[in-house]
């Protein structure tokens, strides 16, 4: 499969560019929305949660803490949202021209990585403003992000294929995402939860990733390897199952799209 994807590298590149350029050309403010949207979400949420819920003992200012969880979360939910429609919105391609269909899903996600990087710039500036100590451990952010990307990709393959057969999958999954958001330590820290419920976070890859990000950014420390391994195993298992199903259904995509 690796070999295959390498062969299609130029196609992935151009489909990704189409996604990015097409979106930015449509709106007047273009790139700014991508930066401003998560920023304002962070501002609103930090206002709400720091005054109402009184988050304490984080060791760092709440807006920074929140932003560190919100950005990867938004990447995750936005990616799934677009990836689920990546096959249906490219129906003319799916019906007429053969190339491995996962390329459509992949290109959508790579375009979202671009958004993520843009939004990250503001985050980086905020970290400097709030005088977060810089450390080499921060570089571990990148491999953790790759792992999160891999997890998102696996889930996207599954959902995009299912959504082709029943369009409700996306609405159903929107609900799931809402619940998932509250079960992931984006607006709070896992320590605020009673010990006996914390297993939820261990089995939730998004929680694993977000905790790991915060660990390497703010604590100046290695992430918890054993949780990352759980995250990796879940991602890998999900990918293997999704990819197989996706490939199995691929031959019928053109008939149902």
């Amino acid at each position: 499969m690796r070999n295959n994807m390498l062969k299609y590298w130029e196609l992935i590149k151009h489909l990704t560019l189409r996604e990015i350029k097409g979106r930015y050309k449509q709106s007047f403010l273009g790139f700014f929305w991508i930066i401003l949207n998560p920023f304002f979400q962070m501002v609103i949420m930090s206002f709400v949660f720091s005054t109402i819920m009184k988050q304490q003992g984080l060791g760092i200012p709440y807006p920074i803490f929140l932003y560190a969880g919100l950005l990867p979360w938004l990447f995750f939910s936005n990616s799934l949202g677009s990836a689920m429609n990546s096959l249906t919105s490219n129906s003319s391609l799916v019906k007429k021209i053969y190339f491995p269909r996962e390329i459509l899903v992949l290109a959508t996600l790579v375009a979202k990585v671009f958004d993520f990087i843009l939004a990250f710039i503001i985050f980086a500036i905020l970290m400097l403003v709030f005088k977060i100590n810089l450390s080499w451990y921060m570089l571990l952010y990148i491999p953790i992000f790759f792992l999160q990307f891999f997890f998102t990709y696996g889930l996207s393959l599954l959902l995009s294929a299912l959504n082709l057969f029943y369009r409700d999958v996306q609405y159903l999954f929107d609900l799931v995402l809402t619940l998932w958001f509250y079960l992931t330590p984006v607006i709070y820290a896992t320590e605020f939860f009673p010990e006996k419920y914390r297993f939820i976070f261990k089995l939730n890859p998004m929680s694993v990733f977000i905790n790991a990000y915060r660990q390497v950014l703010f604590k100046g420390d290695f992430p918890k390897w054993e949780s990352l391994v759980v995250g990796l195993l879940i991602s890998l298992g999900l990918y293997l199952v999704s990819h197989r199903l996706f490939k199995k259904m691929e031959g019928t995509f053109a008939d149902v799209v």
């Binding site: 590149k13 350029k21 391609l93 019906k95 021209i97």
Partner: peptide, 26 residues
């Protein structure tokens, strides 16, 4: 396949950009 002319054409992109996009798709 000459069955789908302009496969993947994006209306917001220029002719030049679409030539490359469509070309690699083909």
């Amino acid at each position: 396949p000459l069955i789908e002319l302009g496969a993947g054409f994006h209306p917001e992109l220029t002719g030049r950009e679409n030539i490359f996009l469509n070309g690699v798709i083909l």
